[in-house]
């Protein structure tokens, strides 16, 4: 006898368990919630999922998620094309956009270099980044990868790769978050803040 679940509800539960942080019980609860409510909402959800799966693709220039050839940031003529902010994922890009303080363009790497997890440079979008910078018109590349060992390794790789282009390469500042107090800062935050201090 097959141990695969049978029936459409079982299939739905099985699909929901593929979501991050969702186990069989949570998936079962979600499935029954969907079935107990307005069935029209189920159809709207299914349509939204299908639409995303069919229409969303990487931007032809920066690899952000988009429905067209270029994403909304790359299409925006008001953006400053001379500055490229390199981020790991489209989620990171969305975080920067939420700040509203960056007016340049982005480049999404698609992850971070993690050779221990079989993620080497060939699996990320380093080559398109190099070609983009070599095409000219870029003055500064901001490396906005995570402030972890792997994030720093990714930034280091990008920095070494871009060194031949002569572009100005910068790294995000690190240290104390605005609005916090010294009491809650950990030792590494303070050490980073001291190291990155600047004239006042």
């Amino acid at each position: 006898m097959s141990d695969q679940p049978v029936g459409v509800i079982a299939r739905l539960i099985q699909e929901l368990t593929k979501l991050p942080g969702v186990g069989p019980k949570s998936a079962e609860r979600m499935a029954h919630f969907l079935l107990a409510g307005d069935r029209h909402n189920c159809i709207l959800l299914a349509e939204a999922l299908e639409s995303v799966a069919t229409n969303v693709r990487p931007c032809g220039q920066c690899f952000n998620l988009t429905e067209g050839e270029l994403c909304s940031v790359c299409r925006d003529p008001r953006r400053e094309p001379g500055t490229i902010c390199v981020v790991e994922t489209p989620r990171d890009l969305a975080m920067f956009e939420r700040t509203g303080s960056f007016r340049g363009l982005y480049h999404v790497l698609g992850g971070r270099l993690a050779p221990l997890d079989n993620v080497g440079p060939e699996k990320l979008t380093f080559d398109p980044l190099l070609k983009r910078v070599q095409r000219g018109g870029v003055r500064e590349v901001i490396l906005a990868t995570s402030p972890t060992m792997e994030g720093d390794g990714t930034a280091l790789f990008a920095s070494n790769m871009l060194a031949v282009t002569g572009v100005n390469i910068t790294r995000l500042a690190r240290g104390l978050p605005s609005g916090s107090s010294l009491e809650i800062a950990n030792s590494q935050m303070l050490a980073d803040a001291l190291e990155g201090r600047r004239a006042f």
């Binding site: 050779p115 221990l116 060992m149 720093d152 390794g153 280091l156």
Partner: peptide, 24 residues
């Protein structure tokens, strides 16, 4: 709690890869 970090690995790719190898 952090006891020690190896700042030099963050600025030297061959050294970082060697560190990863030790971890592996």
């Amino acid at each position: 709690q952090v006891v020690e970090r190896f700042a030099g690995l963050r600025t030297n790719l061959p050294a970082l890869y060697a560190g990863y190898y030790i971890a592996e």
